[in-house]
């Protein structure tokens, strides 16, 4: 395990611990987020072990991709008040799950390839959900200082993750096509992962179901 991976695990562990320690004070949506942090932490450890032993972690990354999408979508489902958006989220979970299996069987094998075909639509959906939630927050502002709203931190994390990962994938393809040094990409990748998990950690630390606009 390289230092970047170790730091990634530590940040994930911090987010998981933040959620688990404060579990009773969390609303339903952030309890789901806590379990997503625990799941991603577990899968990251398994991915590193798999990489060391079997020289591939494609299968674990495939599972991680779909697991993340399901958890984050469910978190959004319980935050949104708009019924139309909630229905769209459920439909997207079903569609993405179906696409995941089709992609894994026919296009990007579960054992060998990273699921970029699934990654791209999920990142677009993350960005879309995030912008819709920002819009809903503006339409129905609550009295709590925005810095103390867990929904704001979670939404910022997802917007940041969804847009930057999409951008990074685009750059990676360009660099691969032009045989450019891709170390720069990995540095950026890790910065994004660290920032994302730190924002998730802040969301879990600021969440309090008594005052939270989510699950109201």
């Amino acid at each position: 395990m390289d230092p970047f991976s170790i730091l990634e695990c530590l940040v994930l562990l911090a987010a998981s611990c933040a959620g688990l320690i404060r579990y009773r004070r969390l609303g339903l949506s952030f309890r789901i987020l806590t379990w997503s942090a625990v799941a991603v932490f577990t899968l990251t450890i398994i991915a590193d072990i798999s990489s060391a032993i079997y020289r591939t972690n494609a299968l674990v990354l495939q599972i991680e991709c779909i697991t993340q999408y399901v958890f984050y979508s469910l978190t959004y489902y319980f935050i949104f008040k708009n019924n139309l958006v909630k229905k769209a989220i459920i439909i997207s979970v079903v569609v993405i799950s179906a696409l995941f299996f089709i992609n894994g069987v026919f296009l990007q094998s579960f054992n060998k390839d990273f699921p970029t075909n699934i990654y791209i639509p999920t990142q677009i959906l993350y960005a879309a959900f995030s912008l819709l939630l920002f819009k809903e927050m503006l339409m129905y502002p609550v009295r709590i200082n925005i810095i103390k709203q867990s929904v704001f931190w979670y939404n910022t994390a997802i917007l940041f993750y969804g847009t930057t990962m999409f951008f990074i994938l685009g750059i990676y393809n360009y660099m691969a096509a032009h045989n450019l040094d891709d170390n720069f990409i990995f540095v950026f990748w890790y910065i994004i992962i660290y920032a994302f998990n730190i924002l998730m950690c802040i969301a879990l630390l600021t969440e309090n179901k008594k005052n939270s606009p989510a699950d109201a």
Binding site: F160, I171, L180
Partner: peptide
Amino acid sequence: HDEGLRILVLLSIAFFFGITCF
């Protein structure tokens, strides 16, 4: 290649900056 890399780095920084401004 260095030119291409420099442009990509600048693009990335601009992108991050854009998100932060938003």
